[in-house]
Amino acid sequence: MENANKNNHFNPAFVCGYKDPDAVRELLTRVGDRWSILLILTLFKLHESRARFSELENSIPGISQRMLTLTLRNLERDGLIERELFPEVPPRVEYELTNLGKSLIRPLEGLIDWVTINWEEVNKAQVQYDSK
């Protein structure tokens, strides 16, 4: 049994707990990128998970229009948000979390809570490491 445990830690499927570790890595990379977490949480907090592009842009400091557009497209492709185009002049577009996107809120809030609780300790470790 000990050998099985030693060998399993080299098996990516064992480490991530899913038969397709590449799929897990890809989705974690997408959802955990610099802007996706902030965008999902912002959508959740604005207007019952629905907002216009300009509202999102104004609510997320530092995000460029290009990066916001790319992040929205990626999240739409992954089924986490929906985009609705209203046939008006000028056209109005609103973005909304899907049920799948809403299912990420609790884990993301848990991650934010962890960062809030542990930031000072992480910062101290970084300072200590950098001073070596």
Rank of each mutant, 00 (worst) to 15 (best):
45 K>V: 09
47 H>G: 10
124 K>M: 14
77 R>E: 15
63 I>N: 03
86 F>E: 12
88 E>S: 11
122 V>A: 09
81 I>Y: 08
97 L>G: 00
68 L>F: 04
13 A>N: 01
19 K>W: 01
71 T>W: 06
61 P>M: 04
36 S>Q: 06
114 W>P: 06
121 E>Y: 09
47 H>F: 13
58 N>K: 12
20 D>K: 04
17 G>M: 04
80 L>F: 12
40 I>L: 06
86 F>I: 13
86 F>K: 10
85 L>P: 10
27 L>Y: 07
101 G>W: 01
109 E>P: 02
77 R>C: 15
51 A>Y: 05
21 P>N: 02
25 R>P: 07
3 N>S: 14
29 T>H: 06
94 E>N: 08
130 D>R: 09
74 N>H: 09
115 V>Y: 09
30 R>W: 00
95 Y>E: 05
112 I>E: 14
117 I>Y: 07
95 Y>L: 02
74 N>R: 11
17 G>L: 03
16 C>R: 02
79 G>A: 02
4 A>D: 14
42 T>A: 10
69 T>V: 05
22 D>W: 00
92 R>D: 08
99 N>W: 05
130 D>I: 09
8 N>H: 03
129 Y>H: 13
118 N>C: 11
78 D>P: 03
80 L>E: 10
5 N>G: 12
6 K>G: 05
57 E>Q: 13
116 T>I: 11
36 S>Y: 02
101 G>S: 11
76 E>K: 05
4 A>E: 14
78 D>T: 03
60 I>M: 02
108 L>S: 04
82 E>S: 13
50 R>L: 15
22 D>E: 13
85 L>N: 12
26 E>T: 00
60 I>E: 03
105 I>R: 01
128 Q>S: 14
59 S>R: 01
32 G>Q: 06
70 L>D: 14
41 L>V: 07
29 T>K: 00
58 N>E: 15
86 F>C: 06
102 K>W: 01
52 R>G: 15
19 K>F: 00
124 K>V: 15
87 P>A: 13
127 V>R: 02
79 G>I: 02
120 E>D: 12
97 L>Q: 04
112 I>V: 15
21 P>C: 07
117 I>C: 08
67 M>Q: 11
113 D>G: 00
